[in-house]
Amino acid sequence: MTMRVAAIWRYPVKSLGGQEVPSAAIEARGVAHDRRWMVTTPEGRFLTRRELPAMAHFHAAPTIGAGIVLSHRDGTSLAVPVPDNAPLVRVRVWGDHVAAHDAGDPAAQWLSALLGQAMRLVHLPDGVRRPVADGEVTDHVSFADGFPLLVTVTASLDALNRELASPIPMARFRPNLVIEGAPGAFAEDGWQRLQIGHVSVRVVKPCTRCVITTQDVDTGEVIDRLEPLRTLRAMGRVMPGDSKLREPIFGRNAIPDGLGTIAVGDVVSVTA
């Protein structure tokens, strides 16, 4: 069976709702418009659904000119232009300190009021390069946790769901590229390089999973605080060499080796 792209997702603001799209430009940082914006504390530390599950109530859609429209499930929305002329501020994503533009008081006040605590919205400018820790010297990434792309496989989700009392959707894993037609579950373990349409992609390492996978995609409500993490561990889906921590894994982190456009239905070939 031929492997193909089954779905493409982008998440314009880190940890807010994602968008499934029929095609997407692939840039050095990954899918265009993916995680170029981020919510932070007033001091610049990144915030995610791990500590604020209500971030699931928000979505963000790119606009012409690379701005975004933020929307909340209460029906309110706010247009935010790219803050190119704003001063650079220092923000933190995990262990990385990155220069970003603050998006201004209106966005900060709107988010703060709805989430119940003070926060800021920032944008990663084109000229700032955040290195990929496990990549080549020229590789760089957006505000994603660590890599430009997350690739998941439908056959692997099918295998996981057969072990779960209640099946879960792929969206719980927040992938960028979903691939169907793999020869078997977790075939991605052996992939080192893929050709997806006209774009070559390096498959670098497994993706460790966190409590966000236990939350409902749209509400942030914890469905089961143990699943699917417990079952992934029971299936032996843990970070290699991580016998003590047993960090569960699902999907593969990847880095594009060129620019191009990927569309749903594109053929996927394993080239290494």
Rank of each mutant, 00 (worst) to 15 (best):
111 L>D: 08
150 L>M: 11
103 A>V: 09
61 A>M: 10
124 L>K: 14
104 G>L: 05
110 W>D: 13
49 R>K: 15
51 E>K: 13
57 H>A: 15
178 V>I: 04
65 G>Y: 04
141 V>C: 13
116 G>Y: 06
157 L>F: 07
125 P>M: 05
75 G>M: 11
178 V>A: 03
167 P>V: 05
116 G>A: 06
168 I>Y: 05
139 D>V: 00
132 V>C: 04
107 A>H: 11
83 P>M: 12
162 R>L: 13
114 L>K: 15
165 A>S: 11
150 L>T: 07
113 A>F: 00
165 A>K: 07
85 N>C: 03
179 I>G: 10
78 L>S: 05
189 D>P: 02
48 T>E: 05
68 I>T: 13
92 R>D: 01
76 T>I: 11
81 P>F: 02
136 E>C: 02
190 G>T: 14
66 A>M: 01
105 D>T: 15
61 A>Q: 14
55 M>R: 00
85 N>D: 15
88 L>P: 07
135 G>M: 08
92 R>W: 11
121 L>N: 14
168 I>A: 06
104 G>V: 08
111 L>S: 08
193 R>Y: 03
76 T>A: 14
169 P>V: 03
125 P>V: 08
138 T>W: 09
84 D>S: 15
95 G>D: 14
60 A>D: 12
155 A>I: 01
179 I>N: 06
194 L>H: 07
112 S>N: 05
191 W>Y: 11
63 T>V: 10
62 P>E: 05
191 W>R: 06
183 P>Y: 00
190 G>N: 12
151 V>I: 15
63 T>K: 10
112 S>G: 15
178 V>C: 03
84 D>G: 12
137 V>T: 15
111 L>R: 05
152 T>A: 03
140 H>W: 13
106 P>W: 09
68 I>Y: 07
168 I>S: 05
169 P>L: 02
83 P>F: 10
104 G>F: 05
53 P>E: 09
164 L>V: 06
70 L>Y: 03
166 S>T: 14
97 H>C: 02
167 P>W: 03
181 G>H: 06
160 L>G: 00
180 E>K: 09
100 A>F: 02
148 P>W: 02
109 Q>F: 01
53 P>A: 09
121 L>V: 11
188 E>G: 04
128 V>P: 03
48 T>V: 09
71 S>Y: 06
70 L>C: 00
170 M>P: 01
70 L>W: 01
170 M>S: 07
95 G>K: 14
60 A>Q: 10
143 F>V: 14
57 H>Y: 07
133 A>V: 12
82 V>S: 13
